[in-house]
């Protein structure tokens, strides 16, 4: 659990972060969204004190972060950045071992942890442990960057545009991977992005920032359907809004009894993808199958359309 209260940071005349307060529940993902210069990256760096706050406080699991040294605090918090920031002169294994090494873990424990993480990220330890970062693809480098960030089993992981340098297809895969790993390990993640779709896809909650202020903080559906006046409305109010809303729901939520023809869609499919499927096939309705393949009923175009509209 991270509690941020009245946090401010001033750079000369500029108030980069202006008295921001919010709380992140343990085991959730919070996405900080905003344009460049909105203060979202500064806010992230105030949490691990890469930047010291001018005023206000951050508590992690009830403990004020200003009570420990900056280095000690940061060794306990994962940190992953855009373009991975791997150390080019160190092997993959040594890169991953950075924080455990700083914490003085013994060698066998570090080696075991490195192997465990490489396997978790789908990289064969035999092949990859001894490679240098430049010998890896962009996607692999990014995965090592995240593996390094969570090497010392932190409860909190801060990510600053972690997928920013990836091309769209690899980016989608990387987002799915981080979601799966977060669900599995139960880490609390605060993630900075300028990409609203990424925030909706990953965030349990979204915090919209502009000019150093936190304008709205809530679940993605709430941000989309009830945006605050002004900047947030402009940010989410584009032509994509109904589709973005649909991307939050699953087919399982709108299954109704009844027959339908065609290849069934899976119940875990997002409503957005199901709509796309219906339109492409020119069908009014499609059968829905459970993960095990059993037929559950059908999903209809009118039901999805009704869901996409403005919610009362």
């Amino acid at each position: 659990m991270i509690e941020v209260s009245n946090l401010s940071r001033r750079f000369g005349d500029l108030l980069a972060v202006d008295s921001v307060s919010f709380a992140v529940a343990a085991g959730t993902i919070t996405a900080l969204v905003g344009t460049s210069g909105s203060g979202k990256s500064t806010l992230l760096r105030l949490i691990n004190r890469l930047i010291e706050p001018t005023s206000g406080a951050v508590r992690i699991d009830g403990r004020d972060t200003s009570t420990v040294s900056g280095e000690e605090l940061r060794r306990g918090i994962g940190y992953a950045i855009q373009g991975h920031g791997l150390f080019p002169h160190w092997t993959v294994a040594r890169n991953i071992a950075t924080v455990p090494d700083l914490l003085g873990w013994d060698k066998t424990r570090i080696a075991r942890r490195v192997n465990e993480l490489l396997e978790l990220f789908g990289l064969d330890p035999e092949t990859y442990a001894k490679k240098l970062p430049r010998q890896l693809s962009g996607g692999q480098q990014q995965r090592i960057g995240v593996a390094r960030a969570i090497a010392a089993e932190p409860k909190v992981l801060l990510m600053d545009e972690p997928f920013g340098a990836l091309d769209p297809i690899i980016r989608l895969k990387a987002q799915e991977d981080i979601l799966a790993i977060q669900r599995r390990l139960g880490i609390t993640i605060v993630l900075v992005t300028h990409d609203l779709d990424e925030a909706i896809r990953l965030g349990d909650r979204i915090a919209v920032m502009d000019s150093g202020r936190l304008l709205q903080y809530g679940a993605p559906a709430e941000i989309l359907s009830h945006p605050a006046h002004g900047f947030v409305e402009k940010l989410v109010g584009g032509a994509d809004r109904p589709l973005r809303l649909l991307s939050l729901g699953k087919v399982a939520e709108l299954v109704e009894p009844g027959p339908a023809d065609g290849v069934p869609v899976a119940e875990a499919t997002s409503l957005r993808d199901a709509l796309s499927d219906l339109l492409w096939r020119g069908a009014e309705s499609l059968p829905v199958a459970s993960n095990s393949g059993a037929l559950l009923g059908r999903i209809t175009l009118p039901a999805i359309v009704a869901r996409a509209g403005r919610q009362a």
Partner: peptide, 8 residues
């Protein structure tokens, strides 16, 4: 940046 962020 990464080195600082990891507590060096």
């Amino acid at each position: 940046e990464a080195a600082k962020g990891m507590g060096m």
